[in-house]
């Protein structure tokens, strides 16, 4: 398979946090969703890819074309100069990107119902995100690297933007890497899921593999001892029952035919993984 971004043995040390030996390939032509709790290292990973931070060791390769021209970026915090308006930002970008398409930009602005002559500081959080996404798309990049692009947006706009991403990925030379807390968005559009916890890569697989393979086994307190400990990845204790995260769901369904094994959501996998115990 063709990899767009190759990350090898990436390490970054902060006083209170480390990104530990990340090995990750972002495949070309797919949407890869980066999940993990706050402070897990998603933003650090994205900033390393973009050279915004200097990582301590490891290697990050972006294959193919000119790095700057072909990447569209949305960062986690707002970054446009607040005193400027959308028109100004368009003029700036026209001088930054050779491939900047002013008509496309205007089209996004009107699609997103953004005013062009009001200072960015008067925009709501959602409007700013929309502006950032419009800018990220308007120079026709082949890679989108987006740190929580849909946070702060209402469900309708989020849906519109997810459609834009799906449209973008129709071109098999395009690639998207996005991090988000809204895992339902990823269930809708992502092909791959990369799960980071406490600076380490926990999971990196096809979304469908993950959702088809993992299961949540629900048992009563008394039945918990009947479960083979090697089948348990992690479990979470509720008031009267246990939620157990398991793998090879279909196989275990036969083994524990007395109990219910549900198909999990990404949220559930994340929560049991992070909060559960082994």
């Amino acid at each position: 398979m063709n990899n767009k971004i190759e990350i090898k043995n990436l390490n970054k040390n902060y006083d209170d946090f480390q990104l530990k030996n990340i090995n990750l390939d972002i495949p070309c032509g797919y949407i890869t969703g980066l999940i993990g709790e706050n402070g897990a290292g998603k933003t650090t990973l994205i900033k390393s890819i973009l050279n915004i931070i200097n990582y301590d060791s490891g290697d990050i390769k972006i294959n193919g074309e000119d790095k700057k021209e072909n990447i569209g970026v949305v960062l986690d915090n707002m970054f446009f100069p607040e005193l400027l308006n959308a028109n100004d930002i368009g003029k700036i970008m026209k001088n930054v990107y050779k491939t900047w398409d002013m008509n496309l930009y205007s089209k996004y602005l009107s699609d997103f119902k953004l005013t062009t002559n009001k200072q960015v500081k008067t925009f709501s959080k959602g409007m700013r995100k929309k502006l950032e996404i419009a800018v990220a798309l308007s120079h026709k990049p082949s890679i989108l690297i987006l740190d929580e692009p849909t946070s702060g947006l209402d469900p309708i706009v989020r849906d519109e933007i997810l459609d834009i991403f799906l449209d973008f990925i129709q071109d098999e030379n395009n690639t998207i890497l996005l991090s988000t807390h809204i895992t339902s968005d990823l269930e809708k559009i992502a092909d791959y899921i990369t799960f980071i916890d406490n600076g380490s890569l926990v999971l990196n697989d096809y979304k469908d593999n993950i959702l088809d393979d993992f299961g949540i086994l629900k048992v009563d307190k008394d039945d918990f001892k009947n479960i083979d400990s090697k089948d348990i990845i992690k479990y979470k204790k509720n008031k009267y029952s246990y939620d157990i995260l398991v793998k090879s769901r279909e196989k275990l369904k036969k083994k524990y035919n007395k109990y219910v094994i549900d198909k999990p959501t990404l949220d559930e996998i994340m929560v049991i993984y992070i909060k559960g115990v082994k």
Binding site: L50, N51, I52, V73, N77, P81, V96
Partner: peptide, 11 residues
């Protein structure tokens, strides 16, 4: 406005 991070990605 935390512009620098973005400026680095632009260039």
């Amino acid at each position: 406005n935390k512009w620098d991070a973005y400026a680095i990605t632009l260039t």
